[in-house]
């Protein structure tokens, strides 16, 4: 990994190709809305979880910042959406920016403290702030309605139909992916990655590691807040459990399951997680057991998460293809490293 790799602009042809791929992805993503009902609901749950987990994955995979407090951003986004929609109006131009801003604001305010810690201490400090937000959401009853949650949240204006909401969520997921994949190749991303591997050296070279980290932390929080807001509108309900550490835990599991060094890993991680959960829970009351076995198996037999396994298969396939073309394998996806 070289530091300060010059930022290369993509040729226009690349953008066209990317747009084509996006359309194809969007086509495939249309399946849940076409099926409607419960499938659409699971699809929305998957996409919102994937958006949040992808934002977390950026921190984990490139920043080396393993947060167990992303539920705070999710919950803030969800409650911002719930409160604005019920008291003022469910307008997307109001709800979504505020959800993102509130989450990012909380990230900036707490990041000043949390980002000075490392590893498990960072994890626990983010957990502590998220749990404080959880207790606040339980006890500030005048605002949050406490343990009963806020129900009857109206649909997002213009997106009352959940097919449209699903499209919006997919749009955010794609936009988040595009943004993050630019980011990890930008100088900011390179510095973060370098600091993850050797912080002292990155600092010694004069890079503003802390400022970059804080900015990316806030960006990650903002997208997680939007994911929470979308979920709130989809469910029509928010509850202090949205702030609970289990939500952060699920996001982290999804990231690790999908593969922490692949931005798209969380998308597959979220799909697998929600599919296994809904499949197993309809068949046995011991559905947690299945999730547990899945995790153990994923680590023992699938290093680098599902993305790692898929990446290996993908590389194997493209190696065969490229035998004639002669090329080098530059697969960055896969291979878990801490």
């Amino acid at each position: 990994m070289r530091l300060a790799l010059p930022y290369s602009r993509r040729p226009a042809a690349g953008s066209v190709a990317r747009a084509g791929v996006l359309v194809a992805a969007a086509g495939l993503a249309c399946m849940p809305p076409l099926a409607g009902g419960y499938s659409l609901h699971l699809g929305l749950e998957t996409v919102t979880l994937a958006l949040a987990a992808m934002s977390l994955g950026l921190l984990v995979g490139w920043g080396g910042l393993v947060s167990l407090g992303h539920a705070a951003f999710w919950g803030l986004g969800a409650y911002a959406a719930a409160l604005l929609s019920t008291h003022i109006g469910p307008w997307p131009w109001l709800v979504l920016p505020v959800a993102a801003a509130v989450a990012a604001g909380f990230a900036l305010a707490t990041g000043i403290f949390t980002l000075r810690s490392h590893g498990i201490f960072f994890l626990m400090l983010t957990l502590a702030f998220a749990q404080l937000a959880y207790v606040l959401s339980l006890q500030w009853r005048g605002l949050t309605n406490g343990d009963n949650g806020i129900s009857g949240i109206p649909g997002l204006a213009g997106f009352e139909d959940h097919r449209a909401l699903y499209g919006l969520a997919i749009g955010f997921l794609a936009a988040g992916y595009a943004l993050f994949s630019q980011l990890v190749r930008s100088p900011v991303g390179q510095v973060l990655d370098a600091a993850r591997q050797n912080e002292a050296r990155a600092r010694a070279l004069g890079y503003p590691v802390f400022a970059y980290r804080l900015a990316v932390y806030a960006l990650s929080a903002a997208l997680t807040g939007i994911a929470g807001a979308l979920a709130a509108h989809e469910r029509g309900f928010v509850h202090p459990r949205d702030f609970y550490w289990v939500v952060s835990g699920v996001m982290l599991v999804v990231v690790l399951l999908g593969g922490q060094r692949a931005l798209w890993g969380p998308v597959i991680g979220a799909s697998v997680y929600i599919a296994v959960e809904s499949w197993a829970s309809a068949r046995t009351e011991f559905w947690n057991l299945f999730l547990g076995l899945l995790l153990v198996a994923a680590v023992l037999w699938g290093r680098g998460g599902i993305a790692g396994v898929a990446g290996q298969a993908w590389r194997a396939a493209s190696r065969i293809q490229r035998l004639a073309l002669k090329g080098t394998d530059a697969g960055a996806a896969g291979r878990a490293r801490v």
Partner: peptide, 25 residues
Amino acid sequence: SRRDLLKLGAGLAVAGVLGCEGEEA
């Protein structure tokens, strides 16, 4: 980036297929 996007598409396809699967569960 193109390859990654393809993978993203594949991921969404998995999400879609699995989403439909729930219907018969």
